[in-house]
Structure formats: C-alpha cells, structure tokens
Design a protein around this nucleic acid. Structure first.
Length: 271
DNA sequence: ACTGGCTCCTGAGGGC
DNA sequence: TGCCCTCAGGAGCCAG
C-alpha cells in the first residue's frame, strides 16, 4: 500500500503516458470506493485532455482544461496502464481510456482509495485545503515542526503523521524517521526540543528522498505502473523488525501500538 | 483546539 | 482443508 514515495513513483511512471493524451472513455465498474464515485464523472471527463499529472500529499492530480481529477490510492490501490480491451480482474474498479489505445486502470482490493473531480483550483478542494506542507518542499523544516508542536501532548509519532502538520509521512516512514533522529515515538510532541526537531525534519527528508529514489518500498501488494517492485524495503532499519538487533547499538528492537498503528523503535537509541 | 478512537474493506497468515 | 482470529502501508470524522 502506498506511502508518499510509492505515490510519487506511480506519478512518475504514469505521467509520460498520460500527459497530452485525451480521455476517450471512462469505465466505472465499482463506484463504492471510500467515497462514491460521482456518476457524472464519465460524462465530465470524456473528451478532456490530461495536461499534467501532479501530486499533493498522497493525492495524484490529473489536470485538464475543465478541472482536475483527485485520485487517492488508499491502503491497497495501484495504477497500471493496460491495452484497451484487456479483461478486467478482481478489484479493477475504474478505467480511464486514452486516445492511444491504452487505459489507466485502478485496482484497489480494500477500496479505501477515492476518485474526485473538481472544476476549481484543486488546492481549494475540501480534502486538500487544510493540508500541511510537502515534506520535500521548502516550507517544511524543523522550525515548522517546533512551532506547531508547542503545548501538544500527543505522541510525536502521531503528530508527525498528522496531515495538517506535514503530509506524506505514513506509518512506515514515521518509524524510520524517528529512529534516524533518535527520538522515542511515544514522547509528547511538545516535549521535543528545537534542535531535535531540526534533526527530525532532516530525517524525514532523508528517508522519503531515499525511498523515492529507490522507487518506493515493497510490502505485500505494491507494484509501480510497470508492475515492478520498489527497492526501499531492504533499506528499512526498524519497520517490521521487532526482536531483531538495532542496526546502530544492537539492543533488541521493539514493537508497540501508538494510535492503533504498529510502531517500531530502539529502546536504547530513541529517547 | 486537541486527543484518542472508530470506521470503511479485502486478503494474508497463524493457530487449532 | 476449514474456520476463526488478528493484522495490514490511510485518513476523514466524531465525541469528549
């Protein structure tokens, strides 16, 4: 399931195949995604040309003259380009068929993904309007985290995963970034100092940047738009490694639940 | 204003 | 082989 590096890998994979292409047909086989797919979507989209494939947080943005498609992959979604007429498989919920004889096909077993349309500037859409800065952009740094965290009692890991604070830091990379910064995931966000937030912001940039460069992390069912796995899984230092020795100090790594999410950390390195 | 908990859904894996 | 349980990468929404 996609975190930000997987979404960015998907964006880079599909963008050259979509940009400049006209959508000739939209097939919705299963509208019951996280939110129901607008029944008007096919009529709105057919005939539109995709000018650009962008991304905001984990939303892919397909820009056309008339508006923008907001596409979220949820926990189990993936996109593939297939020749028109390719028989749909289980959980192939939606096709955007292009004027070159291929279709962008959305597969999502858990149906936590979504497809929205907006005719307005996408950043004003209700799902995007309140989002924090991009972790790889210039507005995100340690001072930003420090400023927002004063007085907050929630665990720093939950704080880091709050999309109003910073977008795109999912469960895997939150554990990885906190490990690299040496911060205990359960520490109250308001009790992490400025210097440590500078280190944390650097760690977030570093881990996400490395993961994007590696093509994402493969866990279970993620494949990029060409069907190849990502290679970041072998670079994970703590995620999924409870019981294994800490790669830095050798102490036994632990798993706990924080905010209903599995969290991995080193009890000696992280304070 | 925050916080924690719940929710949507399918599939994989473990224990018996 | 089958059944039942738990868990999984997201994130919006709600009550307190």
């Amino acid at each position: 399931m996609p975190e930000l590096p997987e979404v960015e890998t998907t964006r880079r994979g599909i963008a050259p195949h979509l940009e400049g292409r006209r959508i000739v047909r939209v097939i919705v086989r299963e509208p019951r995604l996280r939110w129901p797919v607008d029944p008007e979507l096919p009529a709105i989209l057919e005939g539109q040309t995709v000018h650009a494939v962008g991304r905001r947080a984990k939303y892919l943005l397909l820009a056309t003259d008339a508006g923008t498609v907001l596409l979220h992959l949820g926990m189990s979604g993936s996109l593939r380009l297939v020749p028109a007429g390719t028989a749909p498989g289980r959980h192939d919920h939606l096709d955007l068929c292009l004027d070159d004889g291929r279709c962008l096909r959305l597969n999502d077993p858990r149906r936590f993904g979504s497809v929205h349309w907006t005719g307005d500037a996408p950043e004003t859409h209700r799902l995007l309007a309140a989002l924090g800065p991009e972790p790889l952009g210039t507005a995100f740094d340690g001072a930003h985290l420090y400023g927002l965290s004063r007085g907050r009692t929630a665990a720093v890991k939950a704080f880091l995963m709050d999309s109003r604070v910073v977008v795109g830091v999912g469960n895997i990379y939150a554990s990885e970034a906190l490990f690299r910064a040496g911060i205990h995931p359960r520490r109250p966000a308001g009790r992490v100092g400025r210097g440590r937030y500078l280190a944390l912001a650097d760690a977030v940039r570093e881990v996400l940047g490395e993961a994007v460069a590696a093509g994402g992390t493969t866990l279970r069912d993620f494949v990029d738009s060409d069907g190849r796995p990502g290679y970041f899984a072998q670079s994970l230092r703590v995620y999924g490694k409870a019981g294994a020795p800490c790669p830095a100090c050798g102490a036994t790594l632990r798993q706990e639940r924080i905010g209903q999410r599995a969290t991995y950390y080193c009890p000696r390195c992280q304070r």
